[in-house]
């Protein structure tokens, strides 16, 4: 099947003017230099219809710049983008009929008016046939449990209700692709779970392709079979979430319980991270030493009672990647 989104060597450079270093006062005002910032620096990927993809990275990594180029609101500096067979920046208005967008941080609903008014207007904006519109509205109102709040002004809705309203609004024109930007931000666990369930069902029943940016890794763990990580404009990972451990989670923690408290154990290939009475935590890299060799070396120095080996959580790995201090990155 042809990909619904394809991106090749996509680049976006911004010319940013700033004060020349060392120049002060009036001179500083005059002596400005223009520097080229590469917000997106040559990324390529493609997404098949019906995929749910997590797109993550630290703030300023280039996530929203990418999304803006996918929606056509930003023209790429170079590279190729195709979404639903269209060149987004040239066919932006046509493309809007294929895309739904949801922003967790702000609403697209009419703040002062009942929720229903925003929904009804979308029928006119996207020229959805009346019958089709009614079916969609009924379906989403039912699935998202919006019936009781349809006639409530949006400003009186809770964040969870508003978010569900925004989700429904983004889908009434039958988009094939849904971009979600932090859809669960600030929501409690119950609402989060409900929204994730809804998205999974939407994907299953209607085959809607979903591209999700979030800082909540559990959104991705629950929904996405695939995750792309962007950092400083580069796509540094594209694959399954579980495989992140293989790629970046080289680090392990050996936790040993000794017969009696001892000074930090000095063994090659490991660093003692923490000592708590008879228990010590030793950090090591699988690429440098094996667990077996390390245990043997420790056992040769102290008397062991018990031990465990801990794998890092995906969330920890991602946090470390964001911090730029990941051990496994080849760059």
């Amino acid at each position: 099947m042809a990909p619904i989104v394809s991106v090749e060597n996509l680049e976006k450079r911004f010319a940013v003017s700033r004060k020349r270093q060392g120049a002060r006062g009036l001179l500083g005002k005059l002596a400005r230099e223009t520097i080229d910032v590469r917000a997106v620096d040559g990324i390529s990927f493609s997404i098949q219809p019906g995929e749910m993809v997590g797109y993550i990275g630290p703030n300023g990594a280039g996530k929203s710049t990418t999304i803006k180029m996918l929606t056509g609101i930003l023209v790429p500096s170079s590279g190729l983008v195709r979404v639903a067979g269209l060149d987004p920046s040239r066919r932006r208005i046509e493309l809007t009929r294929h895309i739904g967008m949801v922003f967790g941080q702000r609403t697209q609903l009419w703040w002062d008016l009942p929720l229903r008014d925003s929904f009804d207007l979308l029928r006119y904006i996207y020229r959805v046939p009346v019958e089709r519109f009614r079916v969609n509205l009924d379906t989403f109102v039912e699935l998202l449990d919006l019936g009781p709040v349809l006639d409530t002004p949006v400003r009186q809705l809770s964040l969870g209700q508003r978010m569900r309203g925004d989700l429904a609004a983004s889908l009434l024109h039958d988009p094939e692709i849904l971009y979600l930007d932090e859809p669960t931000i600030g929501l409690d666990v119950v609402v989060k779970a409900r929204i994730r369930e809804f998205l999974a069902e939407l994907n299953r029943e209607r085959g809607v392709t979903v591209l999700l940016t979030t800082h909540d890794i559990s959104d991705i763990e629950r929904l996405c079979s695939r995750v792309m990580i962007i950092d400083r404009g580069h796509l540094i990972y594209d694959g399954s979430l579980s495989a992140i451990k293989e790629r970046f989670g080289d680090e392990r923690m050996l936790v040993v319980d000794l017969e009696e408290p001892a000074p930090p154990i000095d063994v090659p290939g490991a660093i003692v991270e923490k000592v708590d009475g008879p228990r010590q935590w030793l950090r090591f890299h699988r690429s440098e030493t094996t667990a077996a060799a390390l245990i043997a070396a420790v056992a040769a120095r102290v008397r062991l009672r018990d031990l465990t080996i801990e794998e890092p959580e995906i969330e920890d790995i991602v946090r470390r990647i964001y911090g730029g201090a990941d051990p496994g990155r080849a760059r």
Binding site: K68, T71, I73, T96, Y126
Partner: peptide, 13 residues
């Protein structure tokens, strides 16, 4: 200022 204008620009209106 808020960036909401980007959403308005990406509607067929």
């Amino acid at each position: 200022r808020s960036g909401a204008v980007v959403t308005d620009f990406s509607r067929p209106i």
